[in-house]
Amino acid sequence: MSQGSFILSAFDLNLWCSILETRFTVDDLGALQAIIDADIDDDPDFTGFYSIDPGELNDINQRFNVGFDPASLNLPEIEVWLERERKGRSLRDVPYLVHTNFELPLMLDGRKKLARFTDILPRTEEAFDRWVEKGLFHKEVFLKRIPPSLKPYVIDPDHRAVRDVYYTLKGEEWRIPAMNLLWKTGVGWNQHFERLEGMLFGYEDWEMDWWIAHRNEQSGGIGGVPFCCTVDSEGLKWMELAGFKALPPLHKIQVHIYDPDEDIATAAFLAEDESAVALARFKLSLEMRRKLLDGDARGPWQINREQIPEINRHLKRQVDVLFPRSAP
């Protein structure tokens, strides 16, 4: 019987954020699909978000013993939404309130100084514009044409420009040109830019410290695309002597995309190589990934010894050693 963990949330249309949530376990996905009339062919794994009407909520409460009652809040404009809890990384696991989806109340409270939206949804823009009209927020809009090199990757061929919308508290307008300058540096994103961006948004120092340390641990740092490959004992010694600043000049390596949410699958790469003693995790910019790693976007890629120096010249940060084991 198929199972899953789901979240019901009450969304306040005035504050434009979730104000009440509950997590519950579904022992039969088919039963849930029957209640909300979801098209199983379009979304068999429940990856979408579903608006739930009062009748559907009542059926969910009864069938899965949830007890979710947003009506008890006595608020006039609330929508109820259903989503499946995502595997692995989740903003709900962060030890502080991430601003995402809570931008409006945090700005009204003065805790958030700047909000930035790319191709903002009309209803979201309307919710923020109400406070611009009241004189509490400042708003600026920027249009950026999509470069020809990226047009093949655009889902909608008629989408020719990216629309960025900024909101700040009155008196904090300086943050908008500062953020634009940050994004126009063109030298590749890193943890220093991440910290500056967090400061402009209004995050506290300890929150940014935690976030950067967490990203370093989980995916090998901020900026770039994470990859991994196996290394033998000689390769590991070579990396140690190089201060873990380069991949070893092996005869040939197989490179995989590194997914921090798939530790079991990642560790399997190590098991498949009898001579391997560890995995090496490294990061390249998206531009270098396209240039150096041809073919299937998901890999794996076979890399010859002659290509390794070029990869080493474009590493985003140090090489991390994962899953070390004794030499065979």
Results as ranks from 00 to 15, higher is better:
22 T>A: 04
1 M>F: 04
87 K>P: 01
142 F>Y: 07
157 P>G: 06
92 R>C: 09
257 I>C: 07
92 R>E: 12
200 L>A: 07
293 L>Y: 05
265 A>G: 02
268 A>S: 13
289 R>E: 15
201 F>T: 08
157 P>D: 10
204 E>N: 10
113 K>G: 06
127 A>K: 10
298 R>E: 13
310 E>V: 11
189 W>E: 12
291 K>L: 10
93 D>A: 15
272 E>Y: 00
40 I>W: 03
90 S>P: 00
44 P>Q: 13
283 K>A: 10
295 G>L: 12
19 I>M: 08
62 Q>Y: 02
126 E>Q: 13
218 Q>R: 14
192 H>Q: 15
265 A>Y: 08
270 L>M: 03
291 K>E: 12
241 L>N: 12
237 K>E: 15
191 Q>G: 03
165 V>T: 15
61 N>P: 03
218 Q>C: 06
299 G>K: 09
168 T>C: 01
80 V>R: 02
235 G>R: 12
265 A>Q: 04
292 L>I: 15
154 V>I: 13
268 A>T: 13
172 E>K: 01
142 F>Q: 09
65 N>S: 13
29 L>Q: 05
109 D>V: 06
287 E>W: 12
14 N>F: 12
84 R>H: 06
131 W>R: 05
75 L>V: 07
185 T>N: 04
68 F>T: 10
294 D>L: 14
234 E>Q: 12
93 D>R: 09
228 C>A: 09
34 A>D: 11
206 W>E: 13
286 L>W: 15
149 S>K: 10
167 Y>I: 06
202 G>R: 00
31 A>D: 02
245 K>W: 00
317 R>P: 00
230 T>R: 02
88 G>N: 09
309 P>M: 07
224 G>H: 01
24 F>H: 03
275 S>P: 01
254 Q>F: 01
240 E>S: 09
38 A>M: 10
69 D>N: 11
263 D>N: 06
207 E>D: 06
250 L>Y: 02
